[in-house]
Every structure is written in C-alpha cells, then in structure tokens.
Design a protein around this nucleic acid. Structure first.
Lengths: 224, 224
DNA sequence: TCAATAGTGTCTGTTAGACATTATGGA
DNA sequence: TCCATAATGTCTAACAGACACTATTGA
C-alpha cells in the first residue's frame, strides 16, 4: 500500500480511432515508448474532474490536431484483463476520422487495417473488437458512414462505405432510392471527374427530420 | 486528502432492473437507509478483483434471489454529476425481469412505473434514461421482449410487449407472419384460457439461426 | 345463444432488387 | 469512335397492412 509512487490510476480512457483505408477499416495505434515494436490504443488516465468524453476529445486532439466530428462511448472494460495502464478499468470511446484527413506524422502513430493489427493487451484487444462490432451494428442509428467520408462525397463513395461496413454488396438503384426517401443528403453544385466515365455529382450530409413512420418491424435481425 | 475515513470508492456499479407492470415499463428502486422518502437505483462499489458484470449480478441476486436472464452494460457515467456513492464514475448495467417474477418484499425495494419515478441523483437519472432508451433501440439486436416475459407466453402477450416497447400498435396478422419468418419462437403443447375467449397456445423463445439474408437497408431510421 | 378472444386466408398498395437504358465524360 | 462510369426508368416478386373469416372457449 505504498503511497509514494504515482498511484496506479483508478481508470484509463482509451480511444479507438477508425478510418477507411483502401476499402478496409483501419485503427490508429500508438507506438510504445520502449524501443520494441509494440503498439497500443491511445489512452490516458483521466485528469481530476475532467469529463470522460472530454478526456477522449483531448486524446484525439493531441493526435490528429482536432477532435473527431463523431464520438461514442463503447463502455467500461475491466474483468482483470491486462492493460498498459494497470488501471482496474478502462472506459473506451470510438471516434471516426474521415478519409483524406492528413495522417499524423512522426512515426509515433500509424493506421493499421483491422486484418493486420499487431498484438495488443487483452483488454485493448477486447475494446477494439467491441468498438468495431458496435460501429457496425449502430450504423442505422448513427451517421457512421458519413463520418468516415469527407464533407463532400459522391454517392458511389457513400455506397462503397456502406458496403465496407455491412460487408455486403448493395444494389445501386435501390441504395439511391432509399437514400432519397431518407432525406439524408443534399446535392451540391459541384462535380468530380474520376478517370474515365461521366463525372459524379458531389453530395453533403444534410439530414432532415422527416418520415417519422418506418414500415414494419425487424424481428429477423434477432436471428442473424 | 485525509486517508482515515473510508476512501471514496473509485467507481460504483449501478443496476437498472426493468420489468413490465400493467402495460408500462417499471424500474426497481431501493429505499435510502435514512428515514426520508428517498429512492436510488441499486448500486454498490466493486469489490477488488471482481469483474464488472459479476458485481451487477451480485446486486441483482441479492435483491431478486437470482440473477437476471439478460443483462447488458449501459456504459460509464461521470462528468461531475452527483451520485449517492460519491464515486467519480459509475458503470451501469441494465437487467430485465420477467413479468410475474415474485417481487422483493420488505419495503426496501419497489417497482416504479417510468412515469412515476421519484427524484434521483442527476447521474442516476441519466443512467436510467440511457438504459431505457438503449433497451428500446436495441430491441432488434437483443431478445429484449422475450426477457420481459415468462418462459412461456402467448403470442398476444408477446405482441403487447413489443407494442409497449415500441410505443405503437402492431398489426396482429403481420406480427405473426414476421414472427414465423424469423424462427424465434416455437409452440408448446400447452394452452391457456384467459377469461372469455378461445384459449391461446403458449410459445417459448427458441431462436434458430436461419434467414441470414435480410432484405434492404435501413437508412430511414437515421432521420427519425 | 351471444360475446370475446385466438388464429388464419386473401387482397392490395408499396417497395427491394433486377434489368435495361440514357447521359456524359475521357481515351 | 469506343469505353467507362453516373444516373434513372420500368418490371416483378415479395411483403406489410387491412379486412374478413373461422375456431373455440366462457357466460
């Protein structure tokens, strides 16, 4: 019970920053200060009196230069699993970074496609898995896909983002019809030419509260 | 920084036990030990080394005699809001209690319909609101309605539970068709006569992993 | 017998998915 | 001109919601 050394913090705040890189989700990891090739999720212990999400914002800002436009708490993790902080519990947040955001320099931070994530402490591994699965299941409640795209995007880019997150192909005409019915995007007067074909119109995320009635009930999702 | 008094715990575990009472959701509250008519969500500080959900289970068991069949973490709450424990953060869990479960006796615990919940500490109020909204939005991912019903139930009871949670009327034939397509329940050979009309067949929750394909995408939910 | 509730068959408007076609740029 | 991609119109099978009807009990 020595009280001299920096007491082990009661809890840590961990941040799962996600972006899309070449058709894959990628997570930002931080290189461990000891020379070895070890990586961790960015984390910090909370400052006294600082709100939980304020700590997460502070961490994101210190890495990326600004806070993420979207952030959500993933939950509290403990259960005796190991964590670099030695804290008994960790409160985790997920944040989404638009594609095309300048990456942090200096070699301390790097994006890892989810398939290539190196070994993490057991607790951080659990945090990452929970964050990814939460992002994927909350897509229809939160504008996840839009926060992974720049402010302006083509409908093809948006559809590809949905396909990446849902891990399944979508039908183009149906996707656009659904988008139109949901009043989620509005066209800008800009167009972008991408190689060969006809240029695509750029859209921006502009949800309008409409269509309070949704049809049917979703019992089928339960069995999936 | 006095270290003599029982140190304020690093975090508390709070439990939101929900059930359905006469067509309304109700939450279980615990009477404050001081004589006044004050109520709180059940909570405890974590024992050293005890997993978060194990603490929640312990609390539920001490109140109801057994753990809830379903439980989910709501998240970590802090942000300087007041809490009876004085802990800096609270990790909250929601648990569902089937209707018809014997209520705890002794006057220490009582079920309050959500509309009649007395004043709580700001943090517990936030926990309760988050738990209820989470329950309602995760209905299609978790068997929420089934965990609020006894093991065996009639389809009318199940539909009424869905209507309670969704706060909207459902169409009987459509509801049953959707249920059949989802392979979520199986009939038993028992029937129950409820007053006047034809007796209803009893069903039990028995999800079978089928129908991996679900139709369409749900963009419309985003704008609601 | 009537009343009340359980359970099911049929019809119809809506829509997801498939397909085809037009539009518009670059090579 | 050909090719590639964007964008849109049309058709069809599937399904949600409405309605009507049958079934089975208690009063």
């Amino acid at each position: 019970m020595s009280d001299r050394r920096p007491r082990k913090p009661p809890y840590s705040i961990d941040v799962v920053l996600l972006t899309a890189v070449r058709g894959q989700l990628a997570v930002l990891l931080s290189r461990s200060p000891d020379g070895r090739e070890k990586w961790t999720l960015p984390w910090d212990s909370a400052k006294n009196g600082e709100a939980l999400d304020a700590t997460a914002s502070r961490i994101s800002k210190s890495i990326l230069g600004e806070d993420t436009a979207w952030k959500e708490q993933i939950g509290a993790f403990g259960d005796g699993k190991r964590h670099p902080s030695d804290a008994e519990i960790s409160v985790a947040f997920a944040g989404l970074v638009p594609t095309g955001t300048p990456s942090p320099v200096g070699g301390v931070y790097a994006w890892f496609p989810l398939a290539d994530v190196p070994a993490l402490s057991p607790r951080q591994r659990q945090i990452l898995d929970t964050a990814v699965s939460m992002i994927r299941t909350r897509m229809d409640q939160s504008p996840v896909a839009f926060r992974l795209l720049p402010q302006m995007f083509t409908l093809t880019e948006l559809q590809q983002m949905y396909e990446l997150l849902l891990a399944k192909r979508l039908h183009k005409a149906s996707f656009r019809r659904a988008l139109q019915g949901a009043w989620l995007v509005e066209p800008t007067d800009e167009w972008r030419s991408e190689g060969r074909g006809r240029p695509a119109q750029l859209y921006r995320f502009a949800p309008r509260k409409r269509r309070p009635a949704q049809r049917g009930i979703r019992l089928d999702l339960l069995s999936s």
